[in-house]
Each structure stands twice: as C-alpha cells, then as structure tokens.
Simulated assay, not measured.
Amino acid sequence: METFESLVRAEFAPENTYLNTASNGLLPARTVAAVHRAVRMRAEGRPLTPLYGDVEAARASFARIAGVPVERVATGASVAEYGALIAASLPAGAEVLTAEADFASLVNPFHMRGDLKVRAVPLDRIADAVRPDTALVAVSTAQSADGRVADLAAVRDAARAHGARIYLDASQSAGWLPIDSGTYDFLASVGFKWLLGPHGAAFFVGPEDPGSLAPLLAGWVAGEKPWDSCYGPVTELAHSARRFDISPSLFSWAGLRASLELIEELGVEAVHAHDTALADRFRTGLASLGHEPVAAPGSAIVSVPGLGHRQPELSAAGIEVSDRAGNLRASFHLYNTPQDVDRLLDVLAG
C-alpha cells in the first residue's frame, strides 16, 4: 500500500529547497507527462476532443475536493473574471465589504465598477463589520501576503444575519485547507498554486440557482450542448454552472486533471496536517532565533516581518521563498520536509 510519503516521492524531485507554493506550486511528474501528451496530440494533428474530457474530470475532482455538487462548478482562467461577474450583478450603490490589503484579483473588480461602495476593514474585524446595508462580503480564505486565515464561520454567520452574500477567494487554501464550500454563495480559486496545476485554469463555485447570475462572459462552451452552440447566439445556456465556463486552455486542463487526482489520492485532510506541521516547526524555530512571524495560527503560510530583504541571499543558497512588502514569506506544501524547514532556519541563523 502506498503511503503519503511514497506517493509524494514518486511525483516530485525538486533541485532546490522550494518553499514558495503561495506563488506557484510545483508540477507533479504525472502532470508534466499529461501536458506533454496533450502537446503531442496537437503537434501530431490528432483529434483534441479527448482533452475536453480532462476539463470535465477536473471539474468533478474539484467538486469533490470543495465538497459541492459538480453542477455548481464552472471552469475558467482567472479569479478576476468571476469577481467581475459578481460585481456586475450588484445594484449601483451596493456595499461590498473586504479585508484591508486583500489580493487585487479579488477586490479590484468591485472597485472598477465605480458605483459600488467598497469598504475595507482589518481581517480580524470583518465579521463584526457586516451591517444591514452590506450586500456582499468578499474575502480570501487565507491572505496571500501573510497567510492569515479568515474566521469563515464567523463571517458566514454575520453575513446570514444581515442578508449579505459571501464570495471567497480560495486560491491560497484550496488543496490544503478543508472548507465546507457549499455553505457560501460564491467561491473561486486558481489552479496553479496549492492545487499544483499549470497556469491558465481556475474554478468558480457558482450560486445554487445559476440563473441568478448573468453569464456575461458566456461563449459557445456555455451552451447546454456546446458543440451545437458554435454559431449565433447560444439559444440554450447550460442548466448548471457550466454556463459560466470560459473556453478552456486545453493543455492546462490536461495537466490540472492529473494534479487534482494526486490531491485526492493524498486527501486534503492529510495534506493539511502535513503542511501545517511544517509551518509550526518553522514558527518554533523562528522563536529560537528571536524572530516573531505574523500571527497566522493554523496556516501553511508563514510571514516574517523585516526579513524580506534576505530573499535574494536565500535564493542564491538554493532556498526559494518570497519577499512580500518587506516580509519573508515561506509556504509549506506536501513536497516539503522537516529538513527543508531546518535548512531555511540554518541559513537565517547565518
């Protein structure tokens, strides 16, 4: 029987100490092979129809990971495009509540409307800041800059009490943080970070009633029978969240299907336990060095104020982390080990 460790070892062989999944996840070997197969199909002139099956398989896999019916999952390319759909659905003057300094792809579409009231508050106050005239709460499940995890249960309760809807950006948590996605109105996530896929693929969990959101980006793939919807207006939109699909980047979806299969084989709960244990090991080591990270309990992302300037030095030593606004950001995923954590601590100790 394959173990967590043996599955991971078979898929990854990084040449450096890679602690930067919050920027880009590593591609599993099976994903690289899947993309190569798809590219060869195109180069050899073979029919690409099977690649559309990869899109559907990936949709179903993400639905299981997210804990939602597959009928609520749409496939696209970016988080921002789905934020724009939600923003377009709001009436002029509606209030959108966000967390201060949340990721631009989440918040920017609401600012671009120009006629919405976008209010930003500290992340730890967002649930308390929901009020009767709040139409939508838009927040990342985990903050990109420092890994802080939103109190989603409190946000959900506050929003429900005031009749507000909730839009989550799960790009920094999908794949390692279990979330009961079905209890929220909207959720989006890119596939190239913790889900370990290529760039160019994203998921959207739409409303239970797909007709309540206008599919303004709908093309031929949004039809109930896509291959019958290639010419002229789409006369019958998909009866599910497929009406929010964007024409797929087929090579990316071929790869992402394979990546999601690995996530499912390992199990999100097991990945969560692995990732957070490594992050906690790093936090403990930082304390022994006299450094205090941003408080982000339960997160796989650790951000250390004042150490961002050491990122080039660490990269030169073969350790990949990020510099975010002067903070050193390290993110720990399934292919990392306790030895990776210790190596980072050793270099930081000088």
Rank of each mutant, 00 (worst) to 15 (best):
A63M: 08
A218R: 05
R242E: 04
G350F: 07
A153W: 15
E313G: 15
N16E: 10
D180L: 12
N108L: 10
R165G: 12
F192K: 08
Y82S: 06
G147K: 13
H333M: 14
A330I: 05
A10T: 07
L216M: 12
P47E: 09
A29D: 04
P28T: 01
F204G: 02
K225G: 03
A84K: 15
V55T: 04
S105I: 10
L345G: 12
G182D: 15
F203M: 07
A330F: 07
E208A: 14
E2Q: 10
S171Q: 04
H36V: 07
A34D: 14
T31L: 09
S288G: 09
S212D: 12
D228Q: 00
A57R: 12
P91A: 15
G76N: 00
T75F: 15
R37H: 14
V294P: 01
L286T: 09
S78E: 02
V73S: 04
L262N: 12
G308P: 09
R40I: 00
V347G: 01
A161M: 00
M112H: 06
R281T: 13
G45I: 01
L19H: 09
D102F: 13
L7D: 09
L260H: 06
T284V: 13
A202T: 06
I65N: 01
Q143P: 00
A325V: 00
V221Y: 02
H199N: 13
S299C: 11
D209A: 13
N336S: 11
S315M: 11
G255P: 15
A164K: 01
P233H: 07
P50H: 10
F244N: 05
H309F: 02
R257S: 14
